[in-house]
Design a binder for these strands. Sequence first.
DNA 1: TCATCCAGTAAACAGCTGTTCGCCGAGTTG
DNA 2: CAACTCGGCGAACAGCTGTTTACTGGATGA
Lengths: 209, 209
Amino acid sequence: MSHTLGAREAQKQQTRRALLDAGLRLLENQSLSSLGLREVTREVGVAPAGFYRHFRDMGDLGVALVAESLGSLHAMIRAILAEQDDAEEVIAHSVRLIALHVRDHRPHIRFIARERHGGVQAVREAIAAELSLFADEVAEALGTQPVAQGWSPEDVHMLAELYVDRMLTTAIAFMEAPADDTAAEEGITQRARKELYLIHLGRRHWLDT
Amino acid sequence: MSHTLGAREAQKQQTRRALLDAGLRLLENQSLSSLGLREVTREVGVAPAGFYRHFRDMGDLGVALVAESLGSLHAMIRAILAEQDDAEEVIAHSVRLIALHVRDHRPHIRFIARERHGGVQAVREAIAAELSLFADEVAEALGTQPVAQGWSPEDVHMLAELYVDRMLTTAIAFMEAPADDTAAEEGITQRARKELYLIHLGRRHWLDT
DNA sequence: TCATCCAGTAAACAGCTGTTCGCCGAGTTG
DNA sequence: CAACTCGGCGAACAGCTGTTTACTGGATGA
């Protein structure tokens, strides 16, 4: 849809983008439920009333940011799941991918971390729904792997949720590290690898009785 | 200190408690950075100016809530660490303890979940510091266990952080479940046990090379 | 070309916010 | 009993908030 959007629609989308970007920028030091409509429009250089041409309210803008933030993560997860090397290689590569993703999308990750349990219900629910989809996707991928033979579907899903949770936690750890503190990043990388490897070991011995 | 506190000081503490309680109550549906000073004093029935007799600002009140929220968790963690049964018993008991704790302190857990990555720096730092202490405590307890022989201190600490993180995640899951949905609680219990057991398996085989 | 659409505007609205001030009066102290 | 301390009060401050209203003027489509 909207192959060739008129100049009219194009400018509207541009303003919308500016609003989303300004919101994300302002959310670096506060949470969504304290972010003001006027604050955002002022940052963009638009009249307050103009906000309503794009969003019903701040929660609405928040939900849009969720889709944007977790949409890009989706691609990353698919890339990780496509791996077929041995465990340690997959783990190392995954952690590296997460670090790169955070480097390029730090404000988005901060937003997700902050609003996952934040004060705006609609946003919480949007994040929970997306993360649930991630878990389903990971579970499906895990199910096809030979290591998962003999596993009950519930156990596979439990493992998928554990992986998703660890990935998000690792991403948040990278996000909280100072902008170019390579030593801190290295420490986080090491710990994340060990955690994932420990889980991998548990996974190997899950059916040992 | 303060064995026998005068009637004057006693009433002051009572007002302080009322402010903290009102704050916690109001934080059920919003985050700290959007909680207003007047909102809190109105809820208590105190003049706005009275707030400053107890707290410098809202961040200050938030830090007080952190100490209160994680202080009670401290006792719970000590109880869990004192266990000496076999793994499955310890796990089952731990998860049961967490569920009970959340039942009795739901608003506190909600507060920690919401503000751990929230918009108020001082509160984020207070929570991070307390959780770091938890991890140290768990690491020390793990170090004395026979299973940990041959482990490097870094690996022990990684495992401790993983445990603390899982406990908090489980607590948050219980907190988010509807108030008396026993089916949901049972599901969370099952999953938490499996996760912890999987980590336990990984732990047993950590030194297998 | 001309009527229609609609993103963005400026102004006004009532209502809220944090913070400061001087004051009161009960609890404490000597 | 007198002097003092100090938690809580009421009023006032400037400044901010979300939302509605009627409007303008450039892109759109017949």
